[in-house]
Design a protein around this nucleic acid. Structure first.
Length: 963
RNA sequence: GGGCGCGUAGCUCAGCGGUAGAGCACUACGUUCACACCGUAGGGGUCGCAGGUUCGAACCCUGCCGCGCCCACCA
């Protein structure tokens, strides 16, 4: 017996544990592999709406394809999230008043991070399970586990040897709070209100020139003033101490007299040249730009081009440096303090022309929220431009496809303008760069320290060191050890870029690469999360355990599942992740990492704003799951996941779909109460009853729509098709229409209807399972003895449903008739409880036959008693025209003649309007001529139908008024 | 400055060339033993505005008005 209602709170964890234990999540189908790698959530992460949507869609696809018999691998894992994790642990340490990271040292700190991970990291995995995600958790990977770390090393070394990774000194985005370089993508440019300071830089030797102050309409100067300075403007006065030149545009006549001369850099008391370059815009500011090569990306380019001196002004925390070229009074000041002081000092010297308020774009670190400082440092770079070529070509040639397609444009735009990727970070938590420095500053890039040492020995031997000298250095005598490892770690996205193949065992499974020394590619980190992730229960399985899992080793795993089938992600990560995976995949695997990239919406709040903690508008998916169940949340997200649109989530919607689950549950209870038990021997093709043929036909239509929609990633359409069929066809009509049969005496018809109904209910469970896995699985077991779990059952396919157009037409006609009668009853204010007689007026033989066949049902559902036949309508009866036939409700004396007259009049008018519209079309010669014939025919037919209807209505009206 | 997208029922959104749709909310009525997390019936839209293409436009094109997002070095 099914319970009165489905209780997600108790059922969901139980069902999930059973699935997991049965091995259903492991690849095992006989069909072609279907593979998705999860966008690895941060170890520090907890489930938010974005995750909920992202993983719901992946799970829908996985469950769908699994049921279609494919060998589904949904590869799960987590990202070590360098900066985020390091920040979390440091914060924890601060809270406990423990010594700082820098005090305890790298090794101790990393131990703490691993300990933190073991204890509180990865909470999101349990949350994904609550959502119902059918990942193969036995294969959970972590970007810092041994196998993935080996892959990272291998890739770094390989790229280095190919010249695609190099060390370089150039301007980087420096985060002075986190004290690390970050990539362009981690910088958020935000408009803030700032100031525009105009300074005078006096000319050398008191020189002066005539500067035009007024112009005529032709732009010719009409007035001049004598200037002994050049006017520059800046939004960052503190950087002036590092100016190496002032630049003007070569065409700017105003400054022509002083080009090539020098001006005094105030405060710094240096002279700098006035040069020309195309970069300054004569119409902006004063037209003259100070060139601060070491603290501005534009200036840097100009400085390099003209070989202008670069002055590094700040230390790693953006405090003014203790340097000769910086006046003593500014040294050690924070950059913003220095700014104030410098402006004050310039002003004091009478060199401040004016200060304007101005909106300026300012770069902020996306994690620290602090103003980013361009800094000249040594960093490791990947040659993104070279790596992008194959990645771009792969999309151009269609080897990888974006869905929706318009995201390809975004991808191209970024890829085609790509800058070198700064991959080093001055952090501790991450993959330490496999580079070792010798005492002479030369570095050796190698996968292991031993290898680096070997290379070093070769090099230093060649340079003429004796074996003894090298040996002495090796033992760390004198200056210290021969080689010192680079302290930096790699950008977190570096390891993420390898995710689609590193998680599948690369480089082990790739014969073109030698295996990394010793280690298994499936190694776990020190935390041993395997024990945490696997269920501990010893409960017997509620269903027989199917044989699943091919026992793939890493070689066949990589071979079978790469390229992966589809990547499901949000657009905000195309650059960070998708692009980088494309680069690394095409380079190392010689094939794209995924065939399709499905870009889904962002989940916003009801007002369309991004959810954020600071705004306090976060809807917690776990709260919704608690309240409505995971199924309801999943269905809502899928139903709203229309392509190319953001999702504004409202709780009412979730509630509505929770109700849908309950509706299905109750339909199943109805079936149970009426002996509709699934019979595997039932052949839907064999159904004889019109009703059964009809519902099987309709179920087939819904299945077809759902399948086509899922194949095209139209999740909302698939959800919609299933919803409508389940509620508006199966529950609203089939259940009602079968009641007399099911509740009647035994018979062949009853037996068939029971089986057909159970069959269709089973199909619904299957179709709905990817969206609502929990209720459907519970019903699957609760409604019949079955061989296996629903999760590993088969997806409905066309041959299971016999098309039955004729039966469908007949039942749909009946539904229309019943609806029309009900509608009229309501309009006439006939009490729902009242049973009234109905006369079928002079029906055509076909209609008469249909009436005859379904008289009881029509009577029951439209509350009629009796239904009989008459040659004409009695006077004063309410008359209904439906598909060319007239039905009369003889309620003489009961009905309001005036109201009925009005009703008929309104309907006639409606017909007239339609006819008029069609006539207008048809009388247009070019319509008949140019429109497709089927459209023209359709209009002709509609015109006939409406005309007939109008005629019948008119006759009814005439009869009424003659009464 | 470039790119992408959105303005359709009170709200949240589908539809994207041939008869305007869903969920929620709303109104009326509820006889029935699957379900009140329900049933039946209903109200509600000149599909942002203006042009154009077309036999035909919510849908295609152009412009405008509002809104959002992404990229970009105007010091």
């Amino acid at each position: 017996m099914l319970d009165k209602a489905f209780d997600p709170r108790t059922a969901e964890p139980r069902l999930y544990a059973a699935w997991e234990k049965s091995g259903a999540f492991a690849p095992g189908g006989e069909g072609a592999p279907f593979t998705i790698v999860i966008p690895p959530p941060n170890v520090t992460g907890s489930l938010h709406m974005g995750h909920a949507l992202n993983n719901t869609l992946q799970d829908v696809l996985c469950r769908f394809e699994r049921m279609r018999g494919r060998s589904v691998l949904w590869q799960p894992g987590m990202d070590h999230a360098g900066i985020a994790t390091q920040m979390v642990v440091e914060r924890e340490m601060a809270k406990r008043q423990e010594p700082k990271r820098t005090e305890i040292g790298r090794e101790k700190f990393l131990e703490k991070v691993w300990a933190w991970k073991a204890e509180s990291g990865g909470a999101i995995i349990a949350q994904l399970k609550r959502l119902g995600a059918s990942c193969d958790w036995s294969r959970t990977r972590f970007t810092m586990d041994e196998g993935l770390s080996a892959a990272v090393n291998k890739v770094f070394v390989a790229l280095y040897r190919e010249g695609l990774i190099y060390r370089d000194k150039r301007l980087v985005n420096w985060d002075p709070k986190l004290v690390t370089a970050i990539s362009d993508l981690e910088v958020e440019n935000t408009e803030v209100s700032g100031h525009f300071w105009h300074f005078k830089y006096p000319l050398e030797n008191g020189e002066s020139y005539q500067f035009p102050t007024a112009h005529d309409e032709n732009g010719e100067p009409t007035a001049w003033e004598t200037r002994d300075y050049i006017s520059i403007a800046t939004t960052r006065p503190e950087t002036m101490l590092g100016d190496g030149a002032v630049a003007v545009h070569p065409s700017d006549k105003r400054y022509a007299p002083i080009v090539g001369k020098r001006c005094l850099l105030p405060l710094a008391d240096r002279y700098i040249p006035i040069i020309t370059d195309d970069y300054p815009d004569p119409d902006f500011g004063s037209g003259a730009v100070k060139i601060t090569g070491a603290h501005d990306f534009n200036d840097y380019k100009v400085a390099i081009k003209h070989d202008i001196d670069l002055f590094i002004l700040m230390d790693e925390r953006a405090r003014m440096l203790d340097a000769k070229y910086i006046p003593a009074k500014y040294r050690g000041l924070d950059r913003f303090e220095a700014r104030k002081q410098i402006v004050a000092d310039i002003d004091e010297r009478g060199l401040l022309i004016k200060v304007e308020d101005k909106k300026i774009m300012q770069p902020f670190g996306d994690r620290s929220g602090v103003v980013i400082e361009p800094m000249l440092t040594d960093q490791w770079y990947a040659d993104a431009e070279k790596l992008s070529l194959k990645a771009i070509a792969a999309v151009e040639t269609g080897k990888t496809r974006f869905v929706p397609e318009n995201w390809t444009k975004t991808y191209y735009q970024w890829m085609r303008n790509i800058e070198p990727w700064c991959v080093s970070r001055q952090l501790w938590w991450g993959h330490q760069i496999p580079a070792w420095y010798g005492p002479d500053g030369h570095y050796f890039v190698a996968e292991t320290e031993e290898e680096a040492i070997r290379e070093a020995i070769i090099r230093y031997t060649a340079e003429g060191y004796t074996v003894e000298e090298i040996d002495a250095m090796m033992r760390g005598e004198g200056e210290g050890p021969l080689l010192v490892r680079d302290e930096d770690v790699l950008d977190t996205w570096f390891s993420s870029a390898l995710w689609p193949f590193s998680t599948l065992g690369w480089p082990e499974g790739d014969s073109s690469f030698p295996s990394p020394s010793g280690r298994g590619a499936r190694g776990e980190g020190p935390a041993g999360e395997a024990a945490v992730l696997r269920p501990q229960t010893g409960d017997p399985l509620p269903w027989p355990l199917p044989h699943r899992g091919r026992g793939e080793d890493s070689a066949s795993l990589l071979h079978n599942h790469y390229p992966t089938s589809v990547l499901v992600t949000a657009h905000d990560i195309i650059f960070f992740w998708v692009a980088r995976m494309m680069m690394m995949g095409t380079h190392f695997m010689k094939d794209v990492p995924f065939r399709d990239v499905y870009i889904h919406a962002l989940v916003l709040d009801e007002k369309g704003q991004k959810m954020s903690k600071s705004k306090g508008n976060v809807i917690d998916p776990l709260v919704l799951i608690d309240k409505y169940g995971a199924d309801a949340l999943r269905f809502t997200l899928a139903a709203m996941a229309a392509q190319g649109r953001n999702i504004r989530l409202s709780e009412a919607r979730v509630e509505g779909y929770r109700n849908f689950g309950t509706k299905l549950w109750n339909a199943a209870r109805f079936c149970e109460m009426n002996g509709c038990v699934f019979d595997p021997a039932f052949d839907p093709q064999s159904a004889r009853e019109t009703l059964n043929q009809w519902i099987i036909h309709e179920a087939g239509k819904a299945a077809g729509e759902a399948t086509a929609a899922l194949e095209a990633y139209r999740f909302n359409d698939a959800a919609g098709a299933i919803y409508k069929f389940t509620w508006n066809v199966f529950c609203d009509w089939h259940v009602e229409l079968t009641k007399p049969i099911l509740m009647g005496a035994d018979g062949l018809a009853k037996a068939e209807t029971q089986k057909a109904t159970a069959f269709v209910l089973t199909q619904i469970m299957k179709l709905l399972h990817p969206f609502m896995p929990f209720v459907t699985e519970e019903l699957w077991r609760g409604t019949a003895e079955r061989d296996g779990a629903l999760i590993v059952s088969s997806w409905p396919t066309a041959p299971e449903f016999s098309p039955a157009e004729k039966a469908a037409d007949e039942i749909n006609w009946m539904i229309g008739l019943i609806t029309a009668i009900r509608s009229t009853r309501a309009e006439m204010n006939i009490p729902a409880s009242a049973k009234i007689p109905m006369l079928v007026i002079a029906a055509a033989p076909a209609t008469a036959a249909r009436i005859d066949a379904h008289k009881e049902l029509i009577a029951r559902l439209a509350r009629l008693e009796p239904v009989s036949v008459a040659p004409s309508s009695p006077k004063g009866a309410v008359q209904i025209v439906h598909e060319g036939s007239v039905y009369a409700l003889p309620l003489i004396g009961v009905i309001d003649i005036a109201a009925e007259t009005a009703r008929l009049g309104k309907e006639i008018e409606k017909c007239a309007r339609e006819i008029e519209a069609i006539d207008k079309k048809m009388s247009n010669a070019s319509f008949v001529e140019k429109a497709p014939p089927e459209i023209v025919d359709e209009n002709r037919e509609r015109r006939i139908a409406f005309a007939e209807r109008r005629e019948k209505l008119a006759a009814a009206l005439a009869q009424l008024s003659s009464a």
